[in-house]
Amino acid sequence: MAANRFNAFTDYGIGIGLRVPHYQHILSQHPVVDWFEVISENYMVDGGRPLAVLDQILEQYRIVQHGVSMYFGSADRLNKEHLRRLKALTRRTKTPWLTDHLCWGSVDGRYTHDLLPMPYTWEAAKITAEKIRQVQDYLEIPVNVENVSSYAEFHISEMTEWQFLTEVVERADCGILLDVNNIYVSSMNHNFNPQEYVDFVPADRVAQIHIAGHSRFEKYLLDTHDHPVLDPVWDLYARAIQRCGPTATLLEWDDSIPSFEEVHAEALKANRFLSIVKSDGNTTPVCEGVR
């Protein structure tokens, strides 16, 4: 099930985010990694070190592009320059699919550089889906949208987040990058059952899964990507791959980044769950072993 039209029928295994502190290690030691995820915007430039490193990585590894500022949910029109550069980069990386967030972050041409939450309304779903369709048509590769962590909810929302996500991807006919850490963070911040979320989303549209660490503050959780994955998130991951099958999985670690080996070892913990699902799709693995 996990190799589907939204990930170009691939089976990518477990990847990690390509980050600057690891460049030297990767290029000199050539570690075995299934794939790397790159932040598209970091490489949408005309030259210099970013592209030189990317080209070297591309000689040896598979890359998937992940964007942070397409803002499908923004009421503004799509930024043509952004799209043009993004398409050029997809040609360079030959990314089999592309991901960005189900959120907004700009209005009237002003950018917040944040992943701001959507109001879960029918109108917003329609506008967002239309923009995803436009991007998908222009880029000519599958687009998958990622659920974000959120800290606020709107009075005008007319449905739950998971209903909204489903409505958008079905209208747009696109895939899902299911971030189980984000589901957990939002569930704690908004008092919902995260498993209900995982159980609701259309499993046949899930092309990729994100796992990550977060931070606990006094009154809320913050999606910081600066810790190992916590047990409740592994539980959700287990549930997600039980529903979706073995799915391309990516560990995000963006702050207080430890050594390459540590990050990779953390990502590979997902193998415990994937191997069980691969051998017996009906068994829900327990996360005792990764604690």
Binding site: A75, D108, A124, F154
Partner: peptide, 13 residues
């Protein structure tokens, strides 16, 4: 102006 734009302007501000 749609409701989405109104809300986004308000929040961004």
């Amino acid at each position: 102006m749609n409701e989405l734009k109104q809300l986004q302007r308000r929040m961004a501000s």
